[in-house]
Design a binder for these strands. Structure first.
Lengths: 152, 152
DNA sequence: CTCGGAGTTGAAGCACACTTCAACTCAAGG
DNA sequence: CCTTGAGTTGAAGTGTGCTTCAACTCCGAG
């Protein structure tokens, strides 16, 4: 054991991601695998890090397609260095910061708005954030047109 | 205009939710409507508040089924008072607090873990949070077994 | 009364992120 | 060598949250 490469079962066990999901990720171009003579997948240990990044990103509410785009920014020729990963995580960090900020605002608005019973869609800050949607017709609008997938 | 009840189109416009989605919510038991003699829906204005609550809750990553359960806790006989809504929002607030806490931890871990290049699934706090998953076999595990739907 | 926009239904379709299945092959211990 | 658990594929199925469609009815201004 502790070979240079991992079977799909080993990667699944170590990452906590089902083999079927790993094959799915591969189809989407998120991870890659070498093949043995018998056509079985063998994963470089660096793929563990990619899977880690994928799952963490999903927690933040990023779609697999967006994650694929981010991973595409990693160098393809060489094994990504810590610096490569750090560059990637910086972008994700600001995404996290923004998400945390939004949730905090939502919480405060919930306190002041639903809490006081004013949730009437009229002049409510939860429904009229005052930014992007301000000019979209006359009626009150919800904050986000369509909710995106995320983690609980 | 400014009648006591709203047509589905009016509710859709004021809430920012498509008529098809409103009918879907009704099928799931999240909102209710009276019917005219001609079988058309007429919504009490208090339904606006329910729709508001639904959309806000979705932002926090709550499924429609969970939202339905929460709304079921509102009094059915009378129009919910501000206090009724406040009770509901208190539970949601702690959910928000928890979610914010988790995201904050994720961000800090990302900084200290991916940032430094140690994202190896071995002795990494992102993968071994030390709580519920600690006794689940010997291999490293991801934080959450399955990501749930949420908002971006 | 008539016309057209708004509303009604059930059924089907879509997007995402996977899982399950059937039928088959591979690989490694006894 | 043989068995058995692990791996392979493409296709189909699942759950959530809707949207779209066809075929039809309603309602209110003119």
């Amino acid at each position: 054991m502790h070979e240079a490469t991992l079977t799909i079962g080993q990667l699944a066990e170590r990452s906590g991601v089902a083999p079927s999901a790993l094959r799915y990720y591969e189809r989407l171009g998120l991870i890659r695998a070498e093949r043995t003579g018998g056509n079985q997948r063998r994963y470089a240990r660096t793929e563990l890090r990619r899977v880690a990044f994928i799952r963490i990103s999903q927690q933040v509410g990023v779609s697999l397609e967006e994650i694929r785009e981010a991973l595409d920014s990693l160098p393809s020729g060489r094994t990504p260095t810590p610096d490569d990963w750090a560059a990637l995580s910086r972008a994700w960090r600001s995404r996290l910061d923004e998400k945390i900020r939004l949730l905090g605002k939502l919480r405060d608005d919930l306190d002041g708005c639903i809490g006081c019973g004013c949730l009437s869609l009229q002049r409510c800050t939860l429904y009229n954030p005052g930014d992007a949607l301000a000019a979209e017709g006359s009626g009150a609008r919800l904050m986000l047109p369509r909710p995106a997938p995320d983690a609980a």
